[in-house]
Design a binder for these strands. Sequence first.
DNA 1: TTCGCTTCACTGGTATGGAAGTATGGTATA
DNA 2: TATACCATACTTCCATACCAGTGAAGCGAA
Lengths: 225, 225
Amino acid sequence: MDIARITIAPSTSAQVHDWLRKRVQQGDLPPGMRISETEVAAAIGISRQPVREAFIRLASDGLAEVRPQRGTYISKISVQAVLSARFIREAVEADLARIVAKARPAEILDRMADEIARQHHADTAGSVEDFIESDDRFHHMLALAAGQDAVWADLERLKAQMNRLRHLSMRAFDRSFTIGQHQAILDALRQGDADAAEGAMRTHLRQMLTEVPQMAAAQPDYFTA
Amino acid sequence: MDIARITIAPSTSAQVHDWLRKRVQQGDLPPGMRISETEVAAAIGISRQPVREAFIRLASDGLAEVRPQRGTYISKISVQAVLSARFIREAVEADLARIVAKARPAEILDRMADEIARQHHADTAGSVEDFIESDDRFHHMLALAAGQDAVWADLERLKAQMNRLRHLSMRAFDRSFTIGQHQAILDALRQGDADAAEGAMRTHLRQMLTEVPQMAAAQPDYFTA
DNA sequence: TTCGCTTCACTGGTATGGAAGTATGGTATA
DNA sequence: TATACCATACTTCCATACCAGTGAAGCGAA
């Protein structure tokens, strides 16, 4: 038996937290929705305590807001938080792009090309979920190629608010546009042109600057300043 | 009465969390130390439940590790996490420096000069705590000057591991050296030289690249890969 | 001495009851 | 009709009790 496969069942509290987190990220639990310890506990068939602890974890993630003696609510998407995360992403991934353009690790660049192909397929198939996952893997590989895997883990935490937003948008138009930008980034990386790679990445990530305010205006109930 | 002053007492759990967090950051609770729900509860004079919830919050901050049925331990300082946060800081603050060099907001640049003066005082007085706080304010103001206050809040979360490390080091030598680098950054900002400002900031933040491995080697019990 | 087993104190995890605070809708009063 | 009051049904928060897993100490046999 593979010794690395020895694992213990996560606590109920942790499982509830994972379940809630995914549902929030996918927009299943909409921003502003009220959730209750009692109701969730009854729905799952457990006591209130583990649910309560899951709520606390969710609040630490910035995905819920616990108002004492009043209720617990799914956080609205903070425009400021999204723009802040975007700013950080642009700065970090610009540096990553420069590093990768200089190193040019063939294997990983090939895998990035594979992801672009997958994005084409997901686009024509209309599979939003697949597209988003491939998009994330594309950017993740950039961090990998730069030898900065841990950096991507940190970005993932910051992206929490951004991810919810993406599930709300992602129309067909945006997707083909995004694929083109990915291709431009990869081309520059392949040519070892650090300036071009950085520029393409910044252009790509600045796309959000126009999209976010539009989406906030379209669905004001889901957003907060 | 000032309506903005209406406030409610934070929950016991939140207060315990704040208390523990500060003690961990200041190195009062050393990395690897075991903490117990029962002991902390008895020491404060409350039940285990709020303490337990404070532990969960602390674990979300990455400052503690709860091992089921075994015990809860103060996290060791992850070298990888520190280096990752450093990488992100360099990328972000380099961009911030460029923005501020172009805008040159006189008022905030003056306040940054004030902080450098405070750092001189704290250095000669040997007050490590004052020095670290002023250091943070200096960098915080850079974000303010760039109109990206929220970005600094995100960086603060990433800096959690780094802050603990700083309380372990900060010898007299490092401090005067640091002040010189701050001055170089400010000079470049004042002259509106974006390239020089970015370069000075990157040099300043790369200082850690040599310091961190040294400290990890000096006190291996406090660190993990 | 060394190995293996049992025991037991102690850990975090869960269930449950009640305390304190809040919002809501009904009701008496002017 | 409008307003002040209050009963009530929630909410989260805390205390308590019990559960299950862990690991080290103690003991005995090889």
